[in-house]
């Protein structure tokens, strides 16, 4: 892994250069919160706020995706939209959000030979180069360390920037990252050992600053045994059934397909959906296998902490804390898992 440094004042220059060669996406403040948007001017990039409100999953698994369009009548035609496959650089993504991609990759890109590969997700994923930014000051509800992750984890990004005072410590992790660096003018310098130590120190401080912890040990086995437990009725009692926790989750990936059409033209779109809605499981027959909020809240917890580990060997949670931050009724996933531990089966 190549280790470089970049003086902070050179960052706009770097972003400007990336922006002139490729499509550049970065965090931008909008209406009081952070969002990943196309960056035209490096000054727009905001690195002070920790997490974007809507996770960057929306860049790859778009909220609205047109799968195909069609015309009606005798000469009807079906057309699939073309996806841009040129390189796109996503700058400033946090390690936990980047990990979110790795968690949902098997869903859209398949795990083994013969699995269906979703072209929309896969093409966007392959065209994206992730330049991560480690978190020096984790927020109240950050708990990524509970999943063997770290605020400066290099595993899930192509290049990782770490703020070490007046410089960024740059780690080039993948080949994709190396190619990108090669393409850019030589504004990086080789990192010294001292700088490497500062980076390690910074990571350590950040890890220590994380105050919340989820004890995930034995969760899968415990959940195996308590599907029908009345605990879920109480856990879901205060849930109002809004979709915030799922829409803002970097690993939630449920979608709905809809045909939208006029008399002559139409299109099939894929839009985000949420298991917290009653109509999500509503059958055409009128039957609903998850009729009450208890079933729906339980499903969310099970999917993340039981089905995911069983299917993919990984928890479906990155510890970003968004669902805790924005839940209007303070349903705290850490507390829910803690209480699961206390339940007598």
């Amino acid at each position: 892994m190549e280790q470089l440094t970049l003086p902070k004042e050179k960052l706009p220059e770097l972003l400007g250069e990336i922006g002139s060669k490729f499509e550049l996406i970065g965090p931008k403040e909008e209406n009081g919160f952070l969002a990943f948007r196309k960056i035209n001017d490096p000054k727009e990039v905001n690195l002070d706020i920790l997490l974007s409100r809507v996770p960057p999953k929306s860049l790859i698994f778009q909220q609205t995706e047109t799968l195909f369009t069609y015309t009606k009548g005798k000469d009807s035609k079906v057309q699939t939209p073309k996806i841009d496959e040129s390189v796109r650089v996503i700058f400033g993504i946090r390690p936990c959000d980047a990990r979110g991609y790795d968690i949902i990759d098997p869903v859209f890109m398949g795990k083994k030979e013969g699995d269906y590969i979703d072209p929309f997700y896969t093409k966007r994923r392959n065209r994206s180069i992730l330049i991560g930014l480690s978190c020096n000051e984790p927020d109240t509800n950050c708990f990524c360390t509970s999943f063997d992750d770290s605020p400066a984890n290099t595993k899930h990004v192509d290049i990782l920037f770490t703020d070490i005072g007046d410089k960024y410590f740059v780690e080039v992790v993948t080949e994709k990252g190396e190619d990108l660096i090669k393409n850019l003018s030589k504004i990086f310098s080789k990192a010294t050992e001292k700088e490497g130590n500062i980076r390690k120190e910074t990571e350590k401080t950040a890890i220590e600053a994380i105050s919340r912890k989820m004890n995930t040990e034995g969760t899968v086995e415990k959940l195996n045994k308590m599907f029908d437990h009345e605990f879920w009725i109480e856990a879901a009692r205060s849930c109002i059934g809004c979709g915030i926790c799922t829409y803002l989750c970097p690993t939630c990936h449920c979608f709905d397909m809809q045909d939208e059409s006029t008399l002559k033209l139409g299109g099939r779109v894929r839009v985000w959906d949420s298991c917290m809605y009653e109509e999500y499981t509503h059958h055409a027959s009128g039957h609903n296998p998850r009729p009450s909020r208890m079933n729906r809240v339980r499903n969310r917890v099970y999917h993340k902490f039981n089905y995911f580990p069983k299917n993919d060997g990984i928890f479906g949670c990155t510890g970003c804390g968004r669902c805790i931050d924005y839940c209007p009724v303070n349903i705290d996933i850490i507390e829910v898992i803690d209480k699961v531990k206390e339940v007598n089966v």
Binding site: G241, C242, I244, Y247, Y277
Partner: peptide, 8 residues
């Protein structure tokens, strides 16, 4: 993002 949290 049409999460309908306002409605709920």
């Amino acid at each position: 993002i049409r999460c309908y949290a306002c409605r709920e």
